[in-house]
């Protein structure tokens, strides 16, 4: 006798917990042929604000953790993801070979970024030879809470925008791809079991049109990554809203997720802090 499968309820990921949307809403996620796959939670603007609160709360601990520790945790995320290779491949629903390649590339990307945690400061920091008797050192520091609109590439694209934000000590609120949001929630399950402190990554599923402007105008968000906003008008609206508190903005641009990411995304979400001290006085 065949057994009836136990299906998963796809919920949001906020502050390390998996709540439904406070609005009680959901939306239908379909496969490539239009068939029903699941009802995903449709996050509200209130959920987005809650996620920002969680991200802000997590920021001091995460940015204050040692770079080695952050690297270890990101590497742990890669390990957990590798362990769920088959599950992700199935959920991506793109054909087994392509899906497995995408999962492998995602694991490798996480490993790549994990290694950056204790190197980026040495690469971007500078010892400055000022014309006077002063010690003068510039170091990169995380900018704070980052709101991210993830691209439609459901796993590799998602990890390629989240990892560079958090590896340096930022915390984030990410709006998953509206078309393919389920991998983001399964990734959240991976994050929840990887020693990543709750609130470092918060995942919202729902309508980008509704959530992105709300996060863009939020006064406790420090930076906005619009990579996943395909609608040019929406991107402009968000960039304008971001001016309210001078958020750092990553504008949407075509991306090849299989290419070497370089340090650009990490650098865009870092501040430079310069410390002076007199010598010999």
């Amino acid at each position: 006798m065949s057994r009836l499968a136990v299906r998963k309820t796809y919920k949001l990921f906020i502050g390390g917990a998996f709540p439904r949307s406070e609005s009680g809403r959901s939306f239908v996620v379909t496969d490539a042929k239009g068939g029903f796959v699941a009802n995903a939670a449709r996050a509200s603007r209130k959920d987005a604000r809650d996620a920002v609160v969680a991200a802000r709360k997590a920021f001091p601990g995460w940015s204050g953790a040692t770079a080695y520790n952050r690297g270890q945790i990101l590497y742990r995320v890669a390990e957990m993801l590798e362990g769920r290779r088959a599950q992700f491949a199935e959920e991506l629903g793109t054909g087994k070979k392509a899906a497995l390649e995408a999962v492998d590339a995602t694991v490798d990307r996480l490993v790549w970024y994990a290694g950056w945690s204790d190197k980026i400061t040495a690469v971007l920091g500078t010892a400055n030879p000022v014309a006077g008797p002063y010690f003068n050192l510039s170091s990169p520091e995380p900018t704070g809470v980052v709101a991210i609109a993830a691209p439609d590439d459901p796993l590799l694209g998602l990890v390629s925008v989240v990892a560079p934000a958090v590896v340096t000590g930022n915390t984030c609120v990410v709006i998953a791809s509206q078309r393919s949001p389920l991998a983001a929630i399964t990734l959240a399950e991976v994050l929840a079991t990887s020693d990543l402190p709750g609130g470092v990554v918060n995942v919202l599923t729902g309508h980008q049109r509704e959530l992105a402007p709300s996060l863009a105008g939020h006064m406790d968000v420090n930076a906005l990554d619009l990579t996943g906003v395909a609608d040019a008008e929406l991107a402009v609206e968000c960039e304008q809203a971001a001016a309210a508190n001078l958020k750092r903005v990553l504008r949407p641009a075509p991306e090849d997720w299989t290419a070497d990411p370089g340090t650009r995304r990490m650098a865009a979400l870092l501040e430079t802090k310069t410390v002076w001290h007199p010598l010999g006085v």
Binding site: N128, P129, V130, A131, Y134, N136, S138, E271, W276
Partner: peptide, 17 residues
């Protein structure tokens, strides 16, 4: 803050961001 002066203040230099 982007610039922190310790036991000094308002120092500027072209080599210093």
């Amino acid at each position: 803050a982007g610039v922190v002066w310790a036991n000094t203040f308002n120092r500027f230099d072209p080599a210093s961001p």
